[in-house]
Design a protein around this nucleic acid. Structure first.
Length: 157
DNA sequence: GCCAACGTTGGC
DNA sequence: GCCAACGTTGGC
């Protein structure tokens, strides 16, 4: 099983929004970056766990854990001219952009803020903490996952 | 293929 | 709101 981190702005779609969604599930649409697209399309597998991170928020940090419940499939919002994420270059016959479905597993007992994560030993090389890191879908190593779960006081599953 | 200009992300 | 870092676009 692999682990990932997904970024969302709290006031656009928060972890609480995911908890309130039907079946606590949503499709992770709107990603328009090729590296993140490759991860969504090729690497994220059923049951993989993801940290749900609030970027550009107050506070900024990891709010909860979710899991992949549907593997990569075309992001239909790219086909819709009225959608803010519309991309005319992506067509149904040859989609450019992909998404997965994720389901909420549990909120963390408290939000682990970015500031706090920066001080946790063992996370120095985490993608999230690298200078200028903007990837909205990114890998988390098994070690990093375990360290963060222990820090949050939740089982590392 | 280079690279300047531009738009976006996201921490602060 | 500012601005550094990054990815993409497009002229050449």
């Amino acid at each position: 099983m692999n682990h990932w981190l997904l970024k969302s702005e709290q006031d656009v779609f928060s972890f609480d929004d995911l908890l309130r969604a039907p079946r606590r599930t949503t499709h992770w649409d709107g990603v328009r970056n090729y590296q993140a697209r490759n991860t969504l399309r090729d690497l994220m597998k059923m049951g993989d766990r993801c940290f749900f991170y609030h970027s550009n928020s107050d506070p900024t940090g990891i709010a909860g854990i979710c899991e992949v419940v549907k593997e990569g499939y075309p992001d239909h919002t790219a086909f819709d001219p009225r959608d803010p994420h519309h991309d005319p270059k992506s067509v149904r016959e040859a989609p450019t952009w992909f998404m997965v479905d994720v389901k909420a597993v549990a909120a963390l007992p408290r939000i682990l803020t970015l500031e706090e994560l920066k001080r946790v030993k063992g996370l120095e090389r985490m993608v999230l903490l690298q200078r200028g890191s903007r990837l909205s879908v990114q890998p988390v190593t098994a070690k990093e996952w375990a360290i963060i779960c222990r820090h949050a006081g939740v089982p590392a599953v």
